[in-house]
């Protein structure tokens, strides 16, 4: 009975807490900066430079939201979160949004009471092998030793995939990606498996990347995207449409270079609505009319952000693939600005 009283108190305090955070946008505006949760370091996605300034593909989502609200991409406090602390940090209100390589899954969306506001990167689990192993497909990996990070969904995906294909493997448990790299190069395992984006990033750091190859099989769906708490749909809309503004801008050919010029008015009504010269989309979000223009001017459109952080001209060198615009055969697709 005492237990139920205790839980009752906890529930009530939880409800009170939920009500108190209803207007995240007001809190953020009063604070003058956005609290954004990022990773504790994933190459290309989030990392501080030599001056402590955060940069990366996920970081730019935070900067886009800050630009939409304040017109200033630097008005962000970055909070590094680990796999264990990320959800509590978001649920407790320590951060306003999380942009941290987080896979959108049913239980995270429903059970943990979060709202994923879109997908900024479609990832999937892949395999990397040395070329001299002579393997061209994951189905030929029978009996291989595989380096795998413990306690991740990749571990479960791997078990499922090998069982479905009726082949065996020997796991080599690894704690961090830096350790995985050392073990894989030292030959402690034949294969390294993790998300394909991370494989590309690690392969780029090898002295002889050409001696290693990423197998064509992708064995899981890992849609990564920013998320917010349940209970403040207005705030969720701001994060969702900040990301969509970047995607739509790429689709419409609006870049950081020409957004200023196009905002004066163009022949395309959707560009006009996006950049605020027509309609009142910004007002509907509770933001200024030039919110999307600020995002594109200061952070860039989706393609530019992809290109500068993880694209083919960077050391990481990831091809657009699934992350190309829907017109180019990819999955990146934004609902219309109307």
């Amino acid at each position: 009975m005492y237990k139920s009283v205790l839980f009752g108190v906890l529930t009530v305090s939880g409800l009170v807490a939920g009500a108190a955070t209803a207007a995240t946008l007001d809190d953020v505006k009063a604070r003058g900066s956005l609290n954004c949760g990022v990773t504790t370091g994933v190459p290309g996605f989030a990392a501080p430079d030599a001056n402590g300034v955060w940069e990366g593909f996920d970081v730019d989502v935070c900067r886009a939201v800050a630009s939409a609200i304040f017109g200033d991409p630097t008005a962000v406090n970055f909070t590094p979160t680990t796999g264990q602390t990320r959800f509590t940090a978001l649920a407790s209100g320590e951060i306003d949004m999380l942009a941290r390589n987080t896979t959108w899954t049913f239980s995270r969306d429903v059970d943990l009471k979060f709202e994923f506001t879109g997908v900024n990167y479609y990832d999937g689990q892949g395999f990397m092998v040395p070329k001299d192993l002579g393997v061209s497909s994951a189905t030929e990996l029978d009996g291989a030793t595989i380096c795998i990070q413990t306690g991740t969904t990749t571990e479960l995906n791997l078990a499922d995939y090998f069982r479905a294909n009726k082949i065996s493997y020997e796991p080599v448990p690894i704690e961090t990606s830096a350790e995985a790299r050392q073990q894989f190069l030292a030959g402690a395992c034949d294969v390294y498996t993790t998300d394909a984006s991370a494989l590309a990033a690690i392969r780029a750091t090898f002295e002889t990347p050409g001696d290693f190859t990423v197998l064509p099989e992708i064995i899981s769906k890992e849609p990564l995207g920013p998320l917010v708490r349940h209970g403040d749909n207005g705030w969720g809309d701001i994060v969702r449409w900040s990301l969509n503004a970047m995607i739509t801008a790429e689709e419409l050919g609006v870049t950081s270079a020409n957004a200023g010029e196009l905002s004066g008015g163009s022949d395309n009504p959707e560009i006009n609505r996006l950049l605020g010269s027509e309609g009142n989309l910004g007002e509907q979000l509770g933001l200024s009319a030039d919110w999307a223009k600020n995002i594109i001017m200061s952070v860039g459109n989706y393609g530019e952000v992809f290109g500068t952080n993880i694209g083919e001209n960077t050391p990481i060198g990831i091809a657009r693939g699934l992350n190309a615009q829907w017109k180019d055969g990819g999955l990146i697709y934004s609902p219309p600005f109307r």
Partner: peptide
């Protein structure tokens, strides 16, 4: 482990920068 970047945490952050990814 609770997301405070002390020295070992910073080794991860530094490695996550493309300039130094791969240093150990």
């Amino acid at each position: 482990f609770i997301g405070i970047s002390e020295m070992l945490g910073f080794t991860n952050l530094i490695r996550a920068n493309t300039a130094w990814n791969g240093i150990y």
